[in-house]
């Protein structure tokens, strides 16, 4: 295996585009190293991105939006008070990925590119309306996060392409987001179901919402029907029930070792309600 320490995204893209065998990009490495160890992936070329300037940066622009470098580990998201204030749901999603130790390495970009439908940080990004900048041999393009995964372990990235930045929109006023996942243990587990809700209020009424579900389909879902169920409401019981029903209806899970389809469909509704309540509370100014 050849180990490359790239110093620019263009160089990384060039190495990847010209590589003959199996190529992997290395940021936090918490998925790649596990796959290498298990013999599932034995890369011929491993391209480390951490020496590229800016990959460890987290910047809030003047318009309030955020740029997050591809090598920023989860622990640093949680340590950034401004980001936690703006996008607590995004941060708590990332913080559920693995242990404290894993948080020292694992990145949003890696969690996204691993292509797992159960990736904990992805529903929060999708609900937030985040986008990614992709650098490739043909130049750069921007894509909504929900369009990056195309199936388990698969992404919309072409050969030689890699994500060079994650962008979060400005949060704006009277808004909140939240992510919840369900696992049998309190920690160190893969989501049976995950759900993120982001919403904005006008007074008590929800005027904007995005709802995203994880682990209930081949990719993380953006569920417009679930958002519609609460837009225009004050998140009363009827709205919550409609939200749960829409979330459960959108869920098209498989049955596997982590949960049956039937159970996942049910839990999708439960989590949607709970996450919406938290997001609503945050939009009202709750600190939690």
């Amino acid at each position: 295996m050849n180990y490359h320490l790239a110093t620019s995204f263009e160089e990384a893209a060039r190495i990847a585009a010209n590589a003959g065998g199996t190529t992997r990009f290395l940021a936090g490495g918490t998925d790649v190293l596990v796959q290498m160890r298990a013999g599932m992936v034995l890369p011929d070329d491993l391209i480390d991105l951490k020496a590229i300037p800016g990959t460890d940066a987290m910047t809030q622009l003047a318009d309030g939006s955020w740029q997050i470098g591809v090598a920023v580990p989860g622990a640093r998201l949680g340590a950034n008070a401004d980001l936690c204030r703006d996008w607590p749901g995004v941060v708590e999603g990332m913080e559920l990925v693995g242990s404290t130790q894993v948080q020292g390495r694992a990145t949003l970009t890696g969690n996204l590119c691993n292509g797992s439908p159960a990736a904990d940080s992805v529903p929060g990004l999708v609900a937030a309306g985040a986008t990614v900048v992709i650098t490739g041999p043909e130049g750069s393009r921007e894509l909504p996060v929900e369009e990056v995964p195309t199936g388990p372990g698969k992404t919309a990235l072409n050969k030689g392409e890699l994500i060079s930045e994650i962008r979060l929109p400005a949060r704006g006023d009277n808004a909140g987001d939240a992510y919840l996942r369900f696992t049998p243990r309190t920690e160190m587990d893969i989501a049976v179901v995950g759900c993120a809700v982001s919403l904005r209020l006008d007074g008590d009424k929800i005027v904007e919402a995005r709802v995203s579900l994880g682990a209930v389909a081949p990719t993380v879902l953006l569920v417009a029907e679930a958002a519609d169920a609460i837009i225009g409401t004050t998140l009363d019981d009827a709205a919550l029930d409609a939200l749960a029903a829409a979330a459960s209806k959108a869920a098209k899970p498989i049955s596997d070792k982590r949960g049956s389809a039937e159970y996942r469909i049910e839990i999708a509704g439960v989590l949607a309600k709970r996450a919406a309540k938290i997001a609503y509370g945050r939009a009202k100014g709750d600190n939690k």
Partner: peptide
């Protein structure tokens, strides 16, 4: 939570600590 989970093919599906769920401190 602990159990050996086998697939239809008779292969063990949870041979790592991520899926073979022994209690963690926060449980």
């Amino acid at each position: 939570n602990e159990e050996y989970i086998y697939g239809e093919d008779g292969r063990l599906q949870n041979p790592i600590f991520l899926d073979y769920r022994i209690p963690v401190a926060s449980d």
